[in-house]
Design a protein around this nucleic acid. Structure first.
Lengths: 337, 337
DNA sequence: ATGAAAGCGCTAACAC
DNA sequence: GTGTTAGCGCTTTCAT
């Protein structure tokens, strides 16, 4: 059994309140007594029990983070941001993985509440409306992070996808590309962020007036999905005289690039490819992927910053916080000769 | 304020002990009373406070995990294994990042103890002897995971690096390679696992009798370090007539491959490259990297399994647990013509 | 089968 | 400046 505050008090010949005062610096204690207590603490290696402390102070210094899968590099980056900023305010991270399951997300929200976390950040990849009700019944700050879907009126932090998509398309146009294929798995889902991204792409193409809107639909947003549509893309390229591809996610672009390498299509000589996200691997690959940098680390950092603020009763910006994005111009996109 | 067990008791017209009994199924309760209590719980949405529970039961159902950086994909994989298996036993993960700092590792061990975690898994990349003393003063199960250094007598789980390195070298030899360069950042550090890996490489080369041991030293084990030694490697290749490179870590191999691509050296036509680890990106790159698969997910899974066992007072295998590895034969290594 | 009461380790009035 | 005491929300004897 580890030593308790009682043991310290007894050995130091003082009351437990005095011990509490010295370890918390909460009230003045005479220098001699303070030293005595500190010595005993050192001697027996006493460490305050944070659980007992939490029970009375109502402060657990714990933030619950529910992720889809920490194995996704962009999620890992977000968690890094959360963890690192959280630490600045003495908060620790309770990590749970939902693996994309609705019920699991819900269950973890409950569990984290029972564990008395002071706030929750949900990093999801699905649309789960029930999460709303769940949170309404609890009274702790939370932030909702989702790269694919938006949940209305939910505090979140991201980038302006419409602008980002618009800018990237314009960049491609500025390179001399006329017909640009937009690749997505969008399937008319109500809350999909793809709506915005597609709108941005369309706007740029419309304004340009010289090219067509061309869409190619993948099964999903993973590398394999990108690889699978490689053949379709090649056909579309012939039919529409397309010279560039704008993928709604880096993963799709990477899968596609691999398909091209495997089939002797040169990037960017034969075709240019742009992605969306700037996941870690995007700048490691050859050619390096031109893409939109979503600041994952910062998104996590701002998310927890918001929670900490709310916990301190400071004013918080309502709803969505948009962070700046960047167009990363790299070798996968070239000028049209 | 959330409802407490008292509220439930009052509303149900029973004592708090009875409520406790129904929520824990710890002792028989008459069906009518049970139903009444359950109804009230449902009605007011009562959720037991796990912190209060922990204070009396001494079970926090929390495992502390200290990582170097969750942004490293292999670490993320380990954490996945820990989290997923932990969940099977109702354990949650308290995640802390040390970013490779000795003092931070130590501080987190203390912090986690104060938070009453039931076990600790330390995923480190440095050699930190003080961790030993730290753990000796606490009395909770722990596992030490480190891809670079070994800590004697510490419970750990990994692969047999000597065997793995030996097998990979032999595989390269079987492909017809005579002179194989071994790339490492090994600098004579006492507890480096590189010792074992180098020994395995040497053994295979010695037994082969037809090639030379050739070493190339990088500054570190990261992608950039691999890229930086590209020029040296090319020189060594000329001088020693080397046809294959065995990198002590995938990251080095990837950096090197990028250097080659950037300098028009073809892999595997001009030179073969093998890595060590099988990090996520190894099988995404083109050519896909031949490497040794360290089962990161399983390593994490076994680590927490060990802790849970110890917590249940089941017998645990002492010290090191070695998991099987695999030689992943992919396109970065080819037969010598 | 149920309730009263002690106590987990700590903080925070409240006295003195 | 220091000690006494009442909880925090819960589990767990111990009676009944």
């Amino acid at each position: 059994m580890p030593a308790t505050i009682k043991d310290v008090a007894k050995m130091a010949g003082v009351s437990i309140s005095t011990v509490s005062r010295v370890i918390n610096d909460s009230k003045p204690v005479s220098p001699e007594v303070r030293k005595k207590v500190l010595d005993i603490i050192e001697e027996i290696g006493y460490k305050p029990n944070e659980v007992a402390r939490t029970l009375v102070t109502k402060k657990s210094f714990l933030i619950g983070v529910i992720v889809t899968d920490i194995g996704n590099s962009y999620i890992a980056q977000m968690v890094r941001g959360i963890e690192e900023v959280g630490k600045m305010y003495n908060y620790d991270i309770l990590l749970c993985s939902s693996y994309g399951d609705k019920e699991t997300e819900l269950k973890f929200i409950q569990l984290l509440n029972r564990k008395q976390v002071e706030g929750i950040i949900l990093i999801s990849e699905i649309f789960n409306e029930e999460v709303k009700k769940q949170f309404e019944s609890y009274d702790i700050p939370f932030v909702y992070l989702n790269r694919y879907y938006s949940m209305e009126e939910f505090p979140t932090v991201s980038i302006n996808d419409y602008d980002a998509s618009y800018e990237m398309t314009n960049y491609l146009i500025s390179l001399g590309h006329k017909n640009i294929i937009y690749v997505t798995a969008y399937n008319d889902e109500e809350n999909s962020l793809e709506k915005l991204k597609i709108a941005g792409y369309k706007k740029a193409v419309d304004e340009f007036e010289q090219g067509d809107e061309i869409f190619c639909y993948s099964k999903g947003y993973n590398i394999e999905d990108g690889y699978e549509i490689g053949k379709d893309i090649l056909n579309i390229r012939e039919n529409y005289d397309a010279t560039a591809i704008f993928c709604s996610h880096d993963e799709l672009a990477i899968g596609l690039m691999n398909y091209f390498i495997d089939n002797n299509v040169r990037v960017p000589e034969d075709i240019s490819i742009a992605g969306y996200g700037d996941i870690k691997i995007a700048s490691i690959l050859r050619p390096r992927l031109t893409t939109i940098k979503e600041p994952y680390y910062d998104i996590g950092a701002v998310a927890i910053r918001r929670i900490v603020k709310e916990l301190k009763d400071e004013s918080v910006d309502e709803g969505r916080i948009n962070l700046p994005f960047q167009i990363k111009k790299r070798e996968s996109c070239a000028k049209v000769e």
